[in-house]
Design a protein around this nucleic acid. Structure first.
Lengths: 162, 162
DNA sequence: CTTGAAATTGAAGCAGG
DNA sequence: CCTGCTTCAATTTCAAG
């Protein structure tokens, strides 16, 4: 049975691809077989689409999610970093160094008032202070930092929301 | 062969647990068997530790990483949201609504100058504008927003860096 | 807590529709 | 592009040390 040619979205994804991706995002257990049965298609078909999505670079990989609290890092913060000089090489070097700082979960190079936003985690307030003072403000290009405690972090629905 | 009792860290994790977690974070292919062989222990042992870590809530789950660019969302931004009123119920209601906005990848409720930081993705500048104007600033409690384009996003080493 | 072997389940390859 | 079948590898279970 040959299905009708499916309409393609802006990124070349048909509804089946989107359904598979949504299932992957929804179900924590990302078993390739479970998706097939849930969507009512053969396992080999699902595997084929998954491989295609992987080859196309849509699915980059899969990562474990750890509980920062359970690991003993109950404190999270956003550290805004502002530079005194914006020499391209200096900025890039600093960027690489910031991502290597223990406790830095994610780093964003942003346009506007701030230069970098760092999402960090720490064991306690003292560790957070040391993270900022000993690993961020020590760099000469860093002119100013501003740390905002995170009360709560939540995931959003993302770009595939229906 | 009974190994010596292992020293526990602050979160009750021994060196073997940490080694397993680091292997999980490092290797994109999170095959349970590969970890066992890499660390030189039996598969069943590795599986046992993994189950324990899961039951303890350290390993929350596993999520697929999609390429926002490949999906057709090449634009990312941080949207700072500031409120006019800080009534607890209003704040919480807004928080829930913001996480449901299509394009919102993550949301942070922060202390300080801003109230929320939203990590968003959009297909193009117009879509980004619509996201902010039609889904965020429409709420009465939102007093002000500030959108900073993300030049580049990178992952940090996290809290388990050696 | 660790382990090897058995038993179950899921993934990968392949050729046909 | 979809599918069932075969082959293979991995996860799970369990009883013992």
């Amino acid at each position: 049975m040959q299905k009708a040619q499916t309409p393609k979205g802006a990124a070349g994804l048909d509804p089946l691809d989107l359904a598979i991706l949504r299932a992957l995002l929804t179900d924590s257990g990302l078993t390739n077989k479970a998706i097939a049965s849930r969507l009512g298609l053969a396992e080999s078909t699902c595997a084929y689409r998954l491989r295609t999505l992987r080859d196309a670079g849509v699915i980059v990989g899969t990562r474990v999610k750890l509980s920062l609290e359970a690991l003993g890092f109950p404190l999270q913060a956003i550290v805004k970093v502002r530079l005194g000089s914006h020499n391209a090489e200096h900025v890039n070097t600093l960027y690489s160094q910031l991502t290597q700082v223990p406790g830095v979960i994610a780093a964003f190079h942003v346009a506007g008032e701030d230069d970098f936003h760092l999402h960090v985690a720490a064991e306690n307030p003292e560790a957070l202070r040391d993270l900022v003072l000993k690993h961020i403000t020590v760099h000469r290009v860093v002119r100013q930092t501003e740390t905002q405690l995170i009360f709560e972090a939540r995931d959003g629905v993302g770009v595939l929301a229906q």
